[in-house]
Design a protein around this nucleic acid. Sequence first.
DNA 1: CAATCTGGCGCC
DNA 2: AAAGGGCGCCAGATTG
Length: 604
Amino acid sequence: MAVAPPLIAVAIARTTDDERWTAVVTDAESRDDVWWATDLDPAELVRHLGTVERDRTPRWVWWGHDTARALAHLDVRPMRCWDLAAVHRLLHGDWRANAARVWARANDLDSSSIPELRPPDLFSAADDHDPEQPVRADGHLDPAWAEGGWSESPARLRRWNLLALDVLDRQRSLADALASERPAISSTLQAESTAAMLAAELEVEGLPFDREVGERILTDLVGPRPRSAAEEVESVAQRDESVLRHVPDGPSYDLRSPEQVKSMLRRCGVEVPDTRSWRLERLVDAHPVVQPLLDWRKAERMATTFGYGWIDEHVEPVGSNLGADLAASRGRLRGRWSSSDGAAGRMTATAGLHNMPAEIRPAVEAEPGHRFVRADLGQIEPRILAAVARDADLARATQDDDMYAPVAARLRVDREIAKVAVLGAMYGQTTGVGAEALRGLEREYPTAMGFLADADRAAQGGNDLRTVGGRLVRMSSGTDGAAGALSSTGSLGAAVDDGADRSRAAARGRYGRNAMIQGAAAEFFKVWALLVRARTATAATDARIVLCLHDELLVHAPDDAVETVRAAIDDALVEAAARWSPAAGSGVRFVADTSIIRRWSDAK
DNA sequence: CAATCTGGCGCC
DNA sequence: AAAGGGCGCCAGATTG
């Protein structure tokens, strides 16, 4: 049995904007400072933190993203973490995990009474609160502390660490209380915390992006970069005209307004309830305006969401670590990352990192002397279903590289039907081609289907759920839960069980059933990604994860390290399956497809 | 005026 | 009987 690593709190802050640092490192057991210093240059700080990491291999405790981001900025890469905000999000299903909310929850305070930070005014003189005291008389954190005041002096950093350790104790005891119901929860909390560190690293690292390639692609799709506002207006007008010239003379229509597009189509004799592309695609023969409209939509989206402005805003030059002449157009595409967001705790990212159109992906290109090692998990959700439901029959199917093949054979249907049915069961879809096969699934895999039905039923009833790893998925109404938008709004007084109510309940059911699978898949993915992170960022290989995409990893590695990285990724998958306790002993096999490529678009 | 909602669409 | 999960982002429309 391994000895648990020591828990050590860390708080760091820049003293001025010229890169001097203050740091306090506090031992959780003794509540004594392991080390503190002020007016440090970054190299000293990094050396000290590295010494603690190496000599004591601690689990680092900190409040949240600020600290993780600062560590990532310093290129300090702790291997074991406890991020109070990440743990809070998981335990309480509350994604607005700022320090005040984390503290309030850990201390059983009502989050609706959290004080707001107010600018100093005439009344502040009447406030007898001591500014050096972080906790107010009502038990809440002083908002001035919570929103940055903690970083103003070494004494405050130390105090901030002690408060963090108090929260840590409360979080650990809550996790202990949940452990009988969710045995994986402790390891989930550790993985989620280290994933928060990875998210901060992804923000700093950025995704290698070649602006010249990107702009060339854009030129093909939406025309050359406008050189003036007038040219911009002209190009927009031309794009609009390519659609509007097919419309009979009459009023003008704004193609960006769905209502007006509906009117426009009506004038052309095409009546539609909405103008979604899948609907219009069936009507391309109904009127010559339909196809140009579809083309317009595609180009317009490219020009607005992923156009020149997008590149200008999110791609930064890599700087001096490459020869300027060698890579003038080389940049890094950066967005903000969250390690666990939304219903099921998936990673999310801004700046289009998670929904970049395939057409643009050739611009994501490894830097000179480097390649990408790309890996994606195969059929992750049905494999996760087999594991979390502990369905032995479905687990047997996962032995196949293509698990839909044995499922199809057992149901005596085509593979495509089996696939649609399995996915539909996890999404809550019960109509269409998969409907008949769904009944086959219920007959042949009653354990897995029963698991989904249980989650569906519980969620329909408004009961909160927990993923297998322990993440709370809130179904109750209120302002906290991600399911707020789904909660029933109508039936307060004269409750009428009408169609709208049933439809909302069904939506909650689908949401809940899917959250159990998507959430567990996210938890498994993070275990895998973190093992890859730990194994590939050694001095020998110095590879970096540059993108996490739900079931896909992109690692940027020096040419001579790519084979080592590939092997590490494959080993990490085997290890993740053994370490992630819901899978351990379930008989479920996980598979990944790994390739070594120059451009992201080269795979698949 | 900003904040929020809605339709639409990219990706998984 | 019917029931399509998640995210971020854009633009227009609406609300406060």
